[in-house]
Amino acid sequence: MKTAIYYFTGTGNSLAAAQRIAADLGDAVLIPIASLQSTSGEITPQADRVGIVCPVYDCGVPVMVAEFAARLDLSRAAYTFAIVTMGGMGVSALHQLNGIFRERQGRGLDAGFAVRMPGNFPPLYRPPAGKKCDRTLAAADERLGAIAEAIGCGRAVPPRFAPFSTLAKAISYGSFAKSVHEADKDFSVSDACTGCGTCARVCPAGNITLERGRPAWNHRCELCCACLHFCPVEAIQLHVMRGTEGRGRYRHPDLTVADMRVQREGGTF
């Protein structure tokens, strides 16, 4: 049974999850959602199983993912699923996708799964490091193995009830979604910047250009913070909440700049 897995990632957790699921299922293709932003109209996957894998932002899905899901035609799919990766709460993101599909398709997800992975929003908390990070990734890998088994069997797994996550999403997600593209106004770059251009290469939204050797943000931000985490000299800071100065950086140990470029420019794994 062929599987199409559409993914969005900022620090690599969701890509690692998608890769693990694809490897376990076999006959699966990974398709970056960011590479489809320049296309218009509905998207009809040529696959029996169709899934979305993405992180949780403010207890919902990234705006780019929500917009993509509204364009997805699932009429040919026998089984649909979603996996969200999260550092804290976020099952409400599965209910969001389920609602989008019900409104668009008249059918919801056949299965929805949440996977705890290293949190990576330094203004809110320090990303885990060392053995703590390793333990979190190992537990996530074990969880993903069980998820792949459920998907492979075609098991129905409705998103579980999550009152606190649902309440948090109701409070915060609307304002997040409304203002996220302008959120890049809170980024800055210090004199430590070397003009290497890594930030521009890893941005899935294609939101960063180099002007006189320094990054400029162009108000298409998804707040994935790839620019922040990938900067080799930590010259980029985000000035919200507690800020990011000295608060650590994170990306999945298997994620590369090349992976991020594939995400924006298109290509499959």
Rank of each mutant, 00 (worst) to 15 (best):
M1I: 08
Y6H: 13
F8Y: 15
T9F: 07
G12W: 13
A17R: 12
A22V: 11
A22N: 10
P32C: 12
S35L: 09
E42S: 14
E42G: 14
I43A: 08
I43K: 08
I43Q: 10
T44P: 02
P45T: 07
D48K: 13
G51V: 03
I52M: 12
I52F: 05
V53P: 06
V53R: 01
V56A: 06
V56Y: 07
Y57I: 01
Y57W: 08
Y57K: 03
G60W: 06
V63W: 07
A69I: 07
L72E: 04
D73Y: 06
R76I: 00
A78I: 00
F81N: 03
F81V: 02
T85V: 07
T85F: 03
G87S: 05
S92V: 00
S92Y: 01
F101T: 07
R102W: 08
R102L: 14
Q105F: 00
G106Y: 01
L109S: 00
V115Q: 06
V115P: 06
R116H: 09
P118D: 03
P118L: 05
P118I: 05
P123T: 07
P128F: 08
A129Q: 15
A129K: 13
A129E: 15
K132P: 05
K132L: 13
K132I: 00
C133Q: 15
C133I: 01
T136F: 03
L137F: 08
A138H: 08
A140I: 07
D141V: 00
R143Q: 13
L144D: 01
I147A: 05
R155W: 02
P159S: 02
R160A: 15
R160H: 05
R160D: 11
F161G: 02
P163G: 04
F164H: 11
L167P: 02
A170K: 15
F176R: 10
A183N: 13
A183Q: 13
D184I: 10
S190A: 12
T198N: 09
A205L: 04
G206T: 10
G206W: 10
G206Q: 08
L210H: 02
E211R: 14
R214N: 10
P215L: 01
A216L: 09
A216E: 02
W217E: 07
W217V: 02
C221F: 07
E222S: 05
C225Y: 14
P232Y: 00
P232Q: 07
V233G: 10
A235M: 11
L238M: 15
V240I: 15
V240C: 06
M241C: 11
M241Q: 14
G246D: 02
R247I: 04
R247L: 01
R249N: 12
R249V: 05
Y250R: 02
T256Q: 11
T256K: 05
T256I: 08
T256F: 08
A258V: 09
D259Y: 13
V262C: 13
Q263N: 12
R264K: 13
R264M: 11
G266N: 11
G267I: 07
